[in-house]
Simulated scan of single mutants.
Amino acid sequence: MSGAMASKTYGTLPAEKRREMTGLEFVQGLVEGRVPLNTIAKILNYDVTEAAAGRVVITGRPDDTHLNPAGTVHGGLSATLLDSCMGLAIWSTLDKGSSQTTLEFKISLVRPITVETGRIKAEGIVLNRGRRIGTAQGRVTDLQGRLLAHGTTTCLIFDS
C-alpha cells in the first residue's frame, strides 16, 4: 500500500452527502482522503491517486492474493481497475445531484500481470459526456508505460 493509502478510510459516503457534491469534488475527495474509498479498494490494494475533470488515475500493486490458478494476476483485477477509473472519470464531470452507473464495459488483456510486474496504473479518460450517457476509455500500464490491458465503458447518468 502507498503511504497516502494508509491514512484513508473505507466505506460508502451517504447518498445525501454525495448529492451535495459535484462529481469532481467527490472524486477529488477520494484522492485527498476526505471521502472514504470503496471497500473493494482495500481488498484489492488500490488507491485513487489523481483526479481532474474527465480524467482519473488509480494505482495498485498486485500481490499473491490476486493470482489465478495459472500463477498470474487474475484478469478481474484489471477489470475492476478499468471499471473504476473509467466510471470515476465520467463521475468527475457530473453536477451536484447527479450520479452514474456502468451499463456495459469491455476490456482486452494485452500482457500477463504478475507479482513481479510491480505497481500498475489505470487511467480513465472521458470520450463523450452527454446528458444521459457517458463513454470513457481506460488503459492499465506498468511503471515503464507498457500497455497491460485497455477497455471502454458506457455509463448511464441519472439524477440521484
Results as ranks from 00 to 15, higher is better:
89 A>D: 08
90 I>W: 01
92 S>L: 00
92 S>C: 01
92 S>W: 06
93 T>C: 01
93 T>H: 04
93 T>D: 04
94 L>E: 00
94 L>F: 07
94 L>C: 05
95 D>Y: 00
96 K>C: 00
98 S>E: 07
98 S>M: 13
99 S>A: 13
99 S>T: 15
100 Q>V: 09
100 Q>M: 09
100 Q>S: 14
101 T>N: 05
101 T>W: 11
101 T>F: 09
102 T>R: 06
102 T>M: 03
102 T>P: 00
102 T>L: 01
103 L>T: 15
103 L>A: 14
104 E>M: 10
104 E>R: 06
105 F>S: 06
105 F>V: 04
106 K>D: 00
107 I>Q: 03
107 I>C: 07
107 I>Y: 04
108 S>I: 00
109 L>S: 04
109 L>K: 03
109 L>R: 02
110 V>N: 11
110 V>P: 04
110 V>T: 07
111 R>A: 02
113 I>D: 01
114 T>N: 08
117 T>F: 06
117 T>M: 02
117 T>G: 09
117 T>A: 03
118 G>K: 05
118 G>S: 05
118 G>Y: 10
118 G>H: 08
119 R>K: 12
119 R>A: 06
120 I>L: 00
121 K>C: 08
121 K>P: 00
122 A>S: 10
122 A>Q: 02
122 A>N: 05
122 A>T: 07
123 E>G: 01
124 G>K: 05
125 I>M: 12
126 V>A: 07
126 V>N: 05
126 V>Q: 05
127 L>S: 13
127 L>I: 14
127 L>P: 11
127 L>W: 10
127 L>T: 11
127 L>V: 15
128 N>W: 09
128 N>M: 01
130 G>H: 10
130 G>D: 05
132 R>K: 12
132 R>W: 05
133 I>L: 13
133 I>C: 06
133 I>A: 01
134 G>F: 00
134 G>P: 01
135 T>P: 04
136 A>F: 13
136 A>N: 08
136 A>Q: 13
137 Q>N: 14
138 G>N: 11
138 G>Q: 09
138 G>I: 10
138 G>R: 02
138 G>V: 06
138 G>Y: 07
139 R>I: 14
139 R>C: 14
139 R>Y: 15
140 V>C: 06
140 V>P: 09
142 D>Y: 04
143 L>I: 02
143 L>V: 07
143 L>K: 09
143 L>F: 03
144 Q>M: 05
144 Q>G: 11
145 G>I: 12
146 R>Y: 07
146 R>L: 10
146 R>T: 12
146 R>M: 11
146 R>G: 09
147 L>T: 13
147 L>Y: 14
147 L>W: 14
149 A>S: 12
149 A>T: 11
149 A>G: 08
149 A>E: 13
150 H>P: 02
150 H>N: 13
151 G>D: 14
152 T>P: 14
153 T>W: 08
153 T>R: 08
153 T>I: 15
153 T>A: 14
153 T>P: 09
153 T>S: 15
154 T>Y: 14
154 T>C: 15
155 C>W: 13
